[in-house]
Design a protein around this nucleic acid. Structure first.
Lengths: 332, 332
DNA sequence: CTGAAAGCGCTTACAG
DNA sequence: CTGAAAGCGCTTACAG
């Protein structure tokens, strides 16, 4: 593996000259520059970006911390953040917290140790806030995505969960539903609290009696929600509509319904949240709330980049408005 | 941001001592070690891994190059590779080629520039092989995943596409189908060629006339395959079964079928390939070939790690055998 | 058991 | 227009 010294020797110039040729800086004669570039090509020299970063006290790496890359919502976010970073010649470290606060902490420390210039974090549930405060002191730009932490001094990009839930609840009420369940999300999740609040607020506005027993928590995977949905069917046959916390949760619920040969859309209405691509593949296709993961990823990248370049405005909260996507799972 | 020098000054020791304390190396008196560690804690010093890497001429970063992180098959692979890397304290760079050979080239060069210790690559279609040969000369470990390139001297982890296609084709024939189409994949894809060969070989073995017009290419997304499926229905109404190149392709085909109110499983049989989680969410659930993306990711990580640690055995080709998953899209 | 010094591969301020 | 030298934050072989 050649270094800048080898290239310099090969051309009979100094390493300073090679460096300047490589970075297109300083005033080199075109002839010298050409000679160097040719040597680079001939030797197959490859620039050591990490050495340059060390010397310049810079970084062109950013970290992305997710809970579950396997969730299509997050993989779309990853893609668009990645595209944004590529445009600005930054590399992306990817890590998965799997919703473990301890693991998340380790990962963030690892990001710092690896000298990221900034990071976007989808916080794990139960993350201790003290840690984030010390993180802030490190002066490294952090933007929170998807899940907000209500820590005033962090940038955040996400959606309006309260509003999204309102949209979908009102839609069901307009269709005549009165016994509406809310299924999914974990106890203690801020996101869930907001969606639940949206659902409740619309119920109240419409003078519908709030039955707290109609809201159910479950893990965000198909298996867990399938089991829960079966429980709902067994114990609350009066329910005519269920608002699922996420599309993934709705998929699990659908399994339970299909197994029992219950006609979704006719006998029961079902809704999701996120509008991942798969939501249009189910049968019936899922009525859901669209939250553009792509847009969140892009915006988060944009904000992060600005911070990395020294922007010190007050923290921004960018809210991508959710929209109602009507398909066939509430009738058609 | 403190450095090792600050910590050393704070404790009144040399930087060598701090370094040794940090790495648990050398013979330091427990008292000194404790003093250093305490200072680290107090100052909030964080280790600069990149500086250490430069000095040691090591790396604890690996690169993962994918075509489409948005495809659930690849996100599962990413997750399991990531887990494997985390176990060994390596960070993962993620990049998306979006199947552009030129972009892929840029990314690989960027990986090298950022001093990855190795990389796993799912090659983009149409990658020029010369480039891979020069890559080989750089001595940096590379393992190919999912798509093989038939370059003898690279490690590869993937599945047996030929065998998988044979499994599913035989299944359809056993169910009585004779007019079987093959839908999807791009011209020039090695993977497609192998699956197509499996399909053809079983047809021939069963004395079924091979109709070359029954095989169709299309991009691996829902929209493209929906359009193609509509074409098939319009022009070849005699077809009773279609083998889709991937689950994603099958999802698009399902859309076309649902739109036309054709009963999947009864009027037409449909199969996928990959067994991504969503394959069990469709209605009817998709009969498909299971290829464990998790297993591929894990194994690829394992092989890469061995290479990084200096293993110089001959290149390995690890084939994860595919299995047939019978659900309801071919009748039940 | 601990310190002084060289060096990993770059860049840049300073001379010339 | 180009070179010699110092320094980014580490580690390790060598002294003591």
């Amino acid at each position: 593996m050649y270094t800048i010294v080898d290239v310099a020797k090969y051309c009979g110039v100094s390493t300073a000259t090679v460096s300047m040729a490589l970075n297109n800086k300083g005033r080199l004669s075109p002839a010298t520059r050409a000679k160097v570039l040719e040597a680079v090509d001939k030797l197959g020299y490859v620039y050591n970006q990490t050495a340059a970063n060390l010397r310049n006290n810079e970084s062109n790496q950013v970290g992305l911390l997710l809970n579950d890359i396997t969730n299509p919502f997050y993989s779309e976010l990853t893609l668009s953040l990645n595209q944004e970073m590529e445009l600005h010649n930054k590399m992306l470290f990817l890590a998965n917290s799997e919703d473990s606060p301890e693991r998340q902490r380790r990962i963030i420390e690892s990001f710092i140790s690896h000298k990221v210039g900034g990071m976007v974090i989808c916080p794990a549930l139960g993350l201790d806030l003290d840690f984030l405060v010390t993180l802030k002191r490190r002066q490294i730009p952090v933007v929170l995505a998807v899940r907000n932490l209500e820590i005033a001094d962090y940038d955040f990009v996400g959606t309006d969960n309260f509003q999204g839930a309102r949209l979908i609840t009102q839609h069901l009420i307009n269709l005549g539903h009165r016994k509406i369940a809310f299924l999914g999300g974990m106890q203690g999740s801020k996101t869930r609290a907001n969606r639940l609040a949206g659902y409740i607020s619309v119920l109240l506005e419409n003078d519908i009696n709030l039955e707290t027993k109609y809201s159910f928590t479950c893990e965000s995977n198909r298996k867990a929600s399938e089991i829960m949905m079966n429980g709902i069917l067994d114990h609350y046959p009066e329910i005519t509509a269920v608002i699922c916390y996420q599309d993934i949760v709705a998929f699990g619920a659908m399994r339970a319904l299909h197994t029992r040969n219950i006609n979704i859309g006719k006998e029961i209405a079902l809704t999701g949240f996120d509008d991942i691509p798969e939501a249009a593949d189910t049968h019936p296709e899922l009525t859901t709330i669209s939250v553009s993961a792509k847009e969140i990823g892009r915006k988060a990248g944009e904000v992060l980049l600005k911070r990395i370049h020294g922007n010190t405005e007050n923290p921004q909260h960018i809210i991508i408005p959710p929209t109602l996507i009507i398909r066939h799972s509430c009738g058609s």
